[in-house]
Amino acid sequence: MEALVIQTLNGVSLASILILTSLGLAVIFGMLGVVNLAHGELFMLGAYAVATMSKLGLSPWWGLLVAPIVVGAIGMLIERTIIRRLYHRPIDTLLATWGVSIVIRQVVRLIYGTGHMSSTSLMVGSTTVFGYEYPTYRLFVILVTVLVVLLTFFLYFKTTFGLKIRLVISNRSMARALGINTSKTDMWAFGIASALGGLAGAIMSPLVTIDPEMGLAFLAKGFIVVIVGGIGSLYGVIAGGAVIGGGEAAISFLLRPVVAQIIIVLLAVVIIRVRPKGITG
């Protein structure tokens, strides 16, 4: 019983982490049609924000507040200077964001040095769930993910801004004809997605290595989540995260973890043959 409860919680927390880290990626892709290869670097910047706070002797919680704001602002800057010119050339955005990812990584190296960074833990200890001990911080990650997802959904479906974005997605020229400043919605959409990436990095910072290359692994994971779940829908991210998180937690019981991971991605490709738009498509 203990194994079942703990492993279920592990699956849920892994799914939350995956959803949190790939939400921004999916938002940018779904809304703007941009494959953002620099998303991993935005994630990395979020983690560096927390580490910087720790280094300055401030509470790492400040990092959690600063990360989305700073990274969101950086995202908007990237959108204004580079992405905006490339919306009609989706493949080129991919190459340009690859360039951006290199630039961010190298600039971080120049500023912080090439070594590892660390941050003080945000929360220690464990909480009793269904009679079993589980790390408080992981429960916190699950909670944050639920809140972030709800907030994103609220923003997308219940606010005027969300309405504008949905209109821009379904018919850009019509939206413009109706007097919507599409360039502004694009910028904000990119900024919000970047802020999500930064927040994810900040939240994950106590659990992962902090160095300039840390974003790459999460980028690859994020893409797998996006293809399994289906592209362009927010539900897709949740479904993809749940399938991969749950699947990995369940299969790694039985198989070598590497094999489990390979099987999941290959399954995703087979699923595409049957359901070309992903599970939710």
Partner: peptide, 21 residues
């Protein structure tokens, strides 16, 4: 799997990217 599944455009790129790993 991909072309008969009508996967095209940037999405094809994303799938192949994930397969690299």
């Amino acid at each position: 799997f991909l072309f008969y599944g009508r996967v095209g455009g940037v999405f094809f790129g994303v799938v192949t990217l994930a397969l690299t790993g």
